[in-house]
Design a protein around this nucleic acid. Structure first.
Length: 927
RNA sequence: GGGCCUUUAGCUCAGGCGGUUAGAGCGCACCCCUGAUAAGGGUGAGGUCUGUGGUUCGAGUCCACAAAGGCCCA
C-alpha cells in the first residue's frame, strides 16, 4: 500500500528557484506603490533619529560597482537602524555641477566654449546632469536601496546654491577667504585655463640647456676649491621661464660637489656629476668637495641676467634617481610657472613672478624679452645666455609635454588670480585637527590618514574658470579694481540664488544684483563687474551639511554617520569637515566609515583600458540585485575586495542555501498559524534547542550589524542555515512533521519553533536580503503578523532563554555522541550494511549522571541521531572491544532490528507481519 | 618619492593579552538518499599563515626590511 497520502509533506508555491531578475521588480513595485519609505517615516515619527548623510555621487554616466557597493552598504546600515526602532531617513543626493558635465555637454552639442552664451551652456549642462541623475536614480532603486528618491538633494537646487554662497560668506567674515596667485595649465592659443582633464600628453622636442648661476661660497662650504669663479648649474627645458626664476631647489640629503671646468667650477649633485659632465660636453669630470644640500640652504646665487638673487632652497620633490631627467640636482625654481615651484615659493615666502600674459607673451617684467611670445623667447634667451657666457651647453630633448586637447598646442604653466580658503586663518587647521580627534573613524586608521592630510595640506583653491557651477559671489570695483565680497555682496547673491537660481548671476548686471546704494568700500565707486569664476565642486559638495542636513526638517545636524570610499578622506570627508569647522566650528558628522575599492578577480583596479570593468546593471540583469547585495555583505569592505566569478558563484550557492532553508520552513508551515502554537513548557527539547540556537544567531547578527561588520552577519546567517537548520534540525524534525498527526503536539511543537525561526531570521536578514525577506514576508507573514512590510517590524528579540546553560552543555554532549555515531554509520554504509541512518540503531553505554541524562532524553536523542532505535545501557553491560569515545561513554551503531515501516520508514519489530509500525497505526487512526 | 591600507586553505572570512596537532562555511573528492528533489545528508582531502631577517624558551600573533596589490598625494 502507498502511505504517502497519509503523511504531511511540505506544501508551498514559494519557488525554489528565485528567478531574481524577473521577480525583483515586483517587490520594487510593492515598495513604491505602498510608499513603504513614507510609511516608515510616519511609523517612526518621534523616535530617536539616526542620520546617515549621503555623499553625492557625480551625475555623469551610469553607476559603477564602487557606487553600487557604497549605496548598498548605506542601505544595509539604514535599514538595520530602522529595524532597531530609529527614525532613519535617507535622503540621496547628487553632485551635478562641474567640469566633466560641462565638457560632456560641450561635446554632445558641439558648442564652442569661447563663444557660447553661458546661460545657454548652463541650461544644456543642467539637462545633461539631470538626465544622468535620473539614470542613476533608477539604477540605485533597482538595487533595492530604500530612500526618499522623489525628493533627493541636488547641488543645482536653488536652496543648495544659496547655502554655498552663505557658507562662503561665513568664511569670508572670519577672514578665511583671500585672493592670490596660483599656477594653472594655460593654453595661450585658447587663452584659457585648463583642467587636468583637458590636457593630453604628447612628446615634444624642447631646448635642453645648462645655465650657470654665479655663486659666491662666502661660508666656505667648499674649502677644497682653489679655482676661479663658482656657479650653480641648473638645467631646464623651458628657457622662457628663466625670467621668473627666484630660487634653486635642492634635496636636503643629497651630496653636492664642484665639477671643475678650466678655472670655473659648477656646483651640482655629486651623483649626477658624471652624467652632467658628459651631457654638457665637458672634457673631463674632476669632482671637488662634498656638501649636503641642507648646508646650502639659505645661500644664494645670482640670477644670470637680472640684478637679483636666486635663493637656494630645499624641496623634497627634488630627486636624483632618474638620470634620464638630465638634471643637475639643482632645480630652477619659478613659482609662477610650476605647481611644485609654487608650493616651494609659498614655503620660503618667495615672490611669485608671472612675466607672461594670457596670450603667452612675455611682459615688461621680463625686461629685454618683453613682448616676445614665449616660444620665440626661448631662442632669444638661449642666445642671450650664450653671449653673456651664462650658458654652459644647449641641446634638445624629446619628452612628454602637456598639450591642449582642443587646439592640440603646447600649454604653459602660468600663475593666475584665484580664490582661496586659508587653512590657517582663524585657526582653521588646528580646529579641524581637533575635530578629527573627536570623530570616530572606522576603521580607526582613517584618523591617521586624514589627520596627516589636513596637517600637511596647502590652502584650498576654490575657484575655477568655468561656467557650469555656482558663481563666486563677489564683484570687482570698476574704478579701483578691488575685489569685494562683503556680507552685503554675498547676501545679495545668496538671496538671488535662493530665489532665481545661480543662472540669474549671468542674466543680471552687478547693479541689478547689489543693493541700490552699494558703494565700493575702498573708493566709493558705484560701478562694478561680477566675478566670473565659479566654485570648485568640492566646495559645493562640502557644504551639503549646511544645504541639506541643516535645512531639511527630517534631518539633524551633525550626522551620525558619513559612509564613503577611502578616497574621500581626501575628498568629501575633508571638504565637509573644513567647511563645517570653518563656518560652524564643529564637524558635521560624529563618525566616518570607509570602504575599500572593488577590484577585479585578480586584485587589480578595474579600468576601461584593461577591459576588466564589470557593469553592475549587467550583473543585476543576469543574476539579480539580491546576489550583489549578498556579495557586498559577504566581504570585509574595510579593505579592497575582489569581484571574482568564483566569489560570485559561491554567493549564488549560499543564496540558494538560505532560500531553500526558508522554503523548507514555509512548506512545512502551510497548515500552521500563531493560534496553533504550542506553549513554551510543552515544546520538545529539540525544538527548544533550535530556538536557543536561533536566539544566539539573532544576538550575533545584531552585534555584527551594530559594528557595521556585515560580513560577520553574512557568515552567521549562512552558517546557521547550513549547519543548524539544514544539516541538523530540519533533518531531525522531518519524521515528526511528516508522520505525526497534523494537529499533534509533536508536530505543532516543531511548527511553533519553525515559525519563530523563520520569522526572526527573515526579519534579521532583511537589511541585506531585502528582496527575498520581503517576498517571504508578503507571502507568509503580512497577514499573520499584521505588518505590511518586513522593514516595518522590530529587529527580533533574543533574550528568551530556551535552554539553561546546563541544558546547552547537555546538547553539546549529545552532539559529540552524534559525531562519533556518524563515523560508525559511515562504516556501516561502506560495508553495505545500511544506507540511510534510519536503517541503523544506536547503543549507548554510560554510567551515573550521564546514564540518567541519556535515559531522560532518549526520545529526543533518537530523533536527533535520526536512527530507528536507541538503547541506553548501564556501563556494566558494555560489550568487549568497544572504543571509549568520551570518558565513560561508549556508542556503537548497528543494523536496526526488525522491518522498515512502510509509512514512516523507521524500523520496528512487527508482531505478526504488519506493514506499518504501531505509532503510524495510531496516527492513521486519528486522521 | 611620501601618507595610509591589504596579503591566513581553491573562495569568502575567524583567529583578545605571543603558548598544546591554525578554525568555520562554501567549493572540491568519494559515498548515501530520492517523502526539501534543477533539493537533502554523510565522510574526507586541502593552509605552516606573501617572503626574508630579528626579538623570545616559544610568533600567524611583536619588530625590521622586502615583494605584490590598493587608495590618496607628489
Amino acid at each position: 500500500m502507498d502511505y504517502s497520502s497519509t503523511i504531511n509533506l511540505p506544501k508551498t508555491d514559494f519557488a525554489m528557484r528565485a528567478n531574481l531578475p524577473q521577480n525583483e521588480p515586483k517587490i520594487l513595485d510593492f515598495w513604491k506603490n505602498e510608499d513603504i519609505y513614507g510609511q516608515l517615516r510616519r511609523q517612526k515619527k518621534g523616535s530617536e533619529k539616526y542620520i546617515l548623510h549621503d555623499g553625492p555621487p557625480y551625475s555623469n554616466g551610469a553607476i559603477h560597482l564602487g557606487q553600487t557597493l557604497n549605496k548598498i552598504l548605506k542601505d544595509i546600515a539604514v535599514k538595520f537602524k530602522t529595524l532597531r526602532g530609529f527614525d532613519a531617513p535617507y535622503i540621496p543626493g547628487w553632485d551635478t555641477h562641474g567640469l566633466p558635465n560641462e565638457l560632456a555637454t560641450i561635446k554632445k552639442h558641439k558648442l564652442n566654449p569661447r563663444t557660447v552664451d553661458p546661460v545657454e551652456l548652463r541650461e544644456k549642462c543642467a539637462e545633461h546632469a539631470l538626465h544622468f541623475l535620473d539614470v542613476q536614480r533608477e539604477q540605485f532603486i533597482r538595487l533595492g536601496v530604500l530612500g526618499d528618491w522623489d525628493r533627493p538633494y541636488r547641488t543645482l537646487d536653488k536652496s543648495y546654491e544659496a547655502a554655498i554662497a552663505e557658507t562662503f560668506g561665513k568664511m569670508a567674515e572670519k577672514g578665511m577667504i583671500y585672493r592670490g596667485l596660483r599656477p594653472v595649465h594655460w593654453c595661450p592659443k585658447c587663452e584659457t585655463a585648463l583642467a587636468e582633464a583637458e590636457i593630453e600628453y604628447k612628446n615634444k622636442i624642447s631646448d635642453s640647456i645648462y645655465v650657470k648661476f654665479p655663486f659666491e661660497d662666502s661660508k666656505g662650504l667648499f674649502p677644497e676649491w682653489k679655482g676661479g669663479n663658482l656657479f650653480i648649474l641648473i638645467w631646464t627645458t623651458t628657457p622662457w621661464t628663466l625670467p621668473g626664476n627666484v630660487a634653486i631647489a635642492l634635496n636636503k640629503d643629497a651630496d653636492f660637489c664642484i665639477v671643475k671646468n678650466g678655472d670655473e667650477g659648477y656646483v651640482m649633485a655629486k651623483s649626477l656629476a658624471e652624467v652632467v659632465a658628459q651631457a654638457a660636453g665637458l672634457p673631463e669630470c674632476e669632482v671637488i668637495g662634498s656638501v649636503k644640500g641642507s648646508c646650502l640652504e639659505g645661500e644664494s646665487a645670482r640670477h644670470p641676467f637680472f640684478d637679483r638673487e636666486s635663493k637656494i632652497v630645499l624641496a623634497p620633490y627634488v630627486v636624483l634617481d632618474d638620470p634620464d631627467s638630465a638634471g643637475t640636482g639643482c632645480v630652477h625654481t619659478a613659482p609662477g610657472h610650476g605647481r611644485d615651484d609654487f608650493e616651494t615659493g609659498k614655503r620660503y615666502n618667495l615672490p611669485i613672478l608671472v612675466p607672461v600674459d594670457g596670450r603667452g607673451r612675455l611682459t615688461e617684467e621680463a625686461g629685454p624679452f618683453a613682448s616676445l611670445p614665449y616660444y620665440e623667447a626661448n631662442k632669444v634667451i638661449v642666445e642671450y645666455l650664450r653671449k653673456t657666457g651664462a650658458l654652459l651647453f644647449a641641446g634638445v630633448k624629446e619628452h612628454s609635454y602637456p598639450h591642449c586637447w582642443r587646439c592640440h598646442g603646447p600649454v604653459i604653466f602660468r600663475a593666475t588670480s584665484q580664490w582661496f580658503v586659508s587653512i590657517d586663518a582663524d585657526g582653521l587647521r588646528e580646529k579641524a585637527l581637533k575635530a578629527i580627534d573627536e570623530i570616530t573613524w572606522l576603521p580607526s586608521w582613517g584618523h591617521d590618514r586624514i589627520y596627516n592630510m589636513v596637517q600637511g595640506r596647502p590652502d584650498w583653491c576654490i575657484s575655477r574658470q568655468r561656467v557650469w557651477g555656482v558663481p563666486i559671489p563677489a564683484v570687482f570695483c570698476n574704478s579701483c579694481g578691488e575685489a569685494i565680497y562683503t556680507p552685503e555682496v554675498v547676501n545679495s547673491a545668496a538671496k538671488l540664488y535662493a530665489e532665481e537660481g545661480s543662472d540669474a548671476w549671468y542674466k543680471k548686471s552687478a547693479e541689478e544684483i547689489l543693493p541700490s546704494e552699494f558703494k565700493c568700500p575702498k573708493c566709493g565707486s558705484k560701478s562694478f563687474s561680477k566675478e566670473k569664476d565659479i566654485f570648485d565642486v568640492w566646495f559645493e559638495s562640502g557644504v551639503s551639511h549646511a544645504a541639506v542636513m541643516a535645512k531639511r526638517e527630517e534631518l539633524e545636524w551633525p550626522a551620525d554617520l558619513y559612509l564613503e570610499g577611502g578616497d574621500q578622506h581626501r575628498g568629501w570627508f575633508q571638504v565637509s569637515l573644513l567647511s563645517a569647522v570653518a563656518s560652524r566650528g564643529e564637524a558635521p558628522f560624529k563618525a566616518a566609515l570607509t570602504h575599500g575599492w572593488v577590484l577585479d578577480g585578480k586584485g587589480n583596479t578595474m579600468h576601461k583600458s584593461l577591459g576588466n570593468v564589470i557593469d553592475p546593471m549587467d550583473f543585476v540583469k543576469k543574476f539579480g540585485a539580491e546576489i550583489l547585495r549578498l556579495f557586498v555583505s559577504s566581504v570585509d569592505y574595510t579593505a579592497d575586495m575582489r569581484f571574482s566569478d568564483e566569489a560570485l558563484a559561491q554567493i549564488a550557492e549560499v543564496y540558494k542555501k538560505i532560500r531553500n532553508s526558508c522554503r523548507f520552513l514555509i512548506g512545512n508551515l502551510y497548515d500552521f498559524s500563531v493560534d496553533k502554537s504550542v506553549e513554551r513548557k510543552q515544546l520538545l527539547p529539540e525544538d527548544k534547542w533550535i530556538l536557543q540556537k536561533k536566539n544566539e544567531l539573532i544576538s550575533k547578527m545584531r552585534e555584527a550589524y551594530e559594528n557595521y561588520q556585515f560580513h560577520v552577519v553574512y557568515y552567521y546567517l549562512q552558517s546557521f542555515c547550513a549547519s543548524e537548520l539544514s544539516a541538523v534540525y530540519m533533518d531531525v524534525v522531518k519524521d515528526r512533521l511528516y508522520t505525526c498527526g497534523p494537529d499533534s503536539l509533536k508536530r505543532r511543537s516543531a511548527q511553533t519553533a519553525m515559525y519563530e525561526v523563520l520569522r526572526d531570521m527573515v526579519a534579521a536578514m532583511s537589511p541585506v536580503l531585502s528582496f527575498t525577506a520581503e517576498e517571504i514576508w508578503q507571502k507568509f507573514f503580512t497577514d499573520k503578523e499584521n505588518v505590511k512590510s518586513v522593514f516595518m517590524v522590530d529587529f527580533p528579540e533574543s533574550s528568551e532563554i530556551f535552554l539553561s546553560e546546563e541544558e546547552q552543555s547537555d546538547w553539546e554532549f549529545f552532539e559529540k555522541l552524534r559525531n562519533v555515531l556518524y563515523l560508525q554509520l559511515e562504516e556501516l554504509r561502506k560495508n553495505k550494511i545500511i544506507k540511510q541512518s534510519l536503517e541503523a540503531r544506536a547503543d549507548v553505554y554510560a554510567k551515573d549522571a550521564a546514564y540518567d541524562l541519556l535515559l531522560k532524553y532518549s526520545e529526543s536523542i533518537k530523533a536527533y541521531f535520526i536512527v530507528s532505535q536507541l538503547e541506553i545501557h548501564p556501563i556494566c553491560e558494555k560489550p568487549e572491544n568497544l572504543v571509549e569515545v568520551l570518558p565513560g561513554v561508549f556508542v556503537t551503531a548497528s543494523k536496526a532490528r526488525g522491518e522498515k515501516c512502510l509509512r514512516c520508514w523507521n524500523y520496528f519489530e512487527p508482531a505478526n507481519g504488519q506493514e506499518i509500525c504501531p505509532r503510524c497505526e495510531e496516527a492513521i487512526a486519528a486522521l
